[in-house]
């Protein structure tokens, strides 16, 4: 590291925001028993979702990005979670956990399960210090309200949501006044820009992808992190050899194979994501001499599988439609799962 870098590190060109449970970590807290098990798990017992740690490491490879983690896990789990991230070779820049003890002591019961009043102010406050030109890619899951919160965040800082809508959403979302004030305050400090490029939603509950159509093409529901890597390759965040490294990790650690990977590739194509160029880049990378890629051999089979999935579709589907997000009508989907007002129907 050069002297100027040590004194004044380069400003980040890209910011990657990650949720933890069900996005990075395989977590079960559907029942009280699961909740207890998760709470008392040791770092080495926690399991990352296949490909997630490889993806984070590859995204950090360029050295000009920041990793910001915002998790709904309680602050008391910080030591274990940090140890797990270190075990996986993950280096983070921000790591925020939820202060649920304080919520409990102050009788703020809505805040215990509520996500909007917790995550939205945290990520807005984090953005205040980011360079205006820094792009963002966000990673969440389908368990709670990540698609809603991340989309609202993106549209707030892009100036596409007005104050009246924000107030309606915060009220309908049961956000406490002090958290709502934090949202407004942070929002006003952020210069208008449109930095959020993608929002990946890991389909932990296998929610049908159409459930997220109302959020527009920026939100990409994914069955696995190979899919995220493919989109990020097309978006210029990753190179083809980096995508292959992620695929290799998934093959070696989670039993993925040519069929699951090529099906994942075709799934994105069928949803209208323009990945043809990414596929060509991957093919070229696979023909290279990289020793790591030996794990992915036989190359002809892989290339054939990808080509067949592409050819099998006939004409390419059109790209998804860009549309304004109606946050007021979508807020019922962002309420905690136990909330009586939460809608189970897919958004219009």
């Amino acid at each position: 590291m050069s002297l100027p870098d040590r004194i004044d590190p380069r400003p980040p060109r890209r910011i990657y925001r990650w949720d933890l449970d069900k996005t990075y970590l395989q977590t079960d807290f559907e029942s009280l028993r699961d909740l207890f098990r998760t709470a008392f798990q040791k770092a080495h017992e926690k399991v990352a979702i296949p490909g997630a740690s490889a993806l984070i490491r590859e995204l950090a490879e360029q050295g000009d990005s920041r990793l910001c983690i915002v998790s709904g896990s309680p602050k008391q789990m910080r030591a274990v979670l940090e140890e797990k991230l270190k075990l996986d070779g993950i280096q983070w820049d921000e790591f925020v956990l939820k202060d649920n003890v304080s919520n409990l002591l102050r009788g703020r019961f809505r805040a215990l399960r509520g996500q909007v009043g917790y995550k939205l102010p945290v990520i807005l406050e984090s953005r205040i210090h980011a360079p205006v030109e820094a792009e963002e890619v966000l990673f969440g899951d389908d368990a709670e309200a990540d698609a809603f919160i991340y989309s609202l965040y993106a549209d707030l800082i892009a100036g596409r949501v007005d104050e009246r809508v924000l107030a309606q959403v915060l009220e309908a979302g049961g956000v406490y006044p002090d958290d709502a004030a934090r949202v407004h305050e942070a929002w006003k400090k952020i210069p208008i820009a449109d930095p959020v490029r993608r929002i990946f939603i890991h389909l932990d509950r296998l929610t049908p992808p159409a459930h997220f159509t109302a959020y527009g093409p920026r939100v990409v529901p994914i069955f696995n992190y190979f899919q995220a890597a493919l989109v990020l390759l097309a978006d210029g965040h990753l190179t083809a050899p980096q995508v292959l490294k992620i695929a290799v990790e998934m093959v070696q650690t989670a039993g993925h194979n040519i069929i699951t990977l090529s099906n994942s590739f075709q799934d994105l194509l069928r949803r209208g994501l323009p990945l043809q160029q990414a596929a060509i880049a991957l093919s070229q990378a696979m023909e290279g001499p990289n020793a790591l890629l030996k794990a992915m051999r036989p190359v002809p089979d892989i290339l054939a599988a990808f080509s067949k999935r592409l050819a099998a579709l006939g004409t390419q589907p059109p790209p998804p439609r860009v549309q304004a997000v109606d946050y007021v009508s979508l807020i019922s989907h962002a309420l905690p799962r136990t909330h009586k007002g939460r809608s189970t129907k897919p958004p219009p």
Binding site: P208, T260, N263, S264, Q266, D267, L313
Partner: peptide, 9 residues
């Protein structure tokens, strides 16, 4: 609801 890793068209 389906698993996209196990389906192709």
């Amino acid at each position: 609801k389906h698993n996209g890793e196990r389906i192709s068209v």
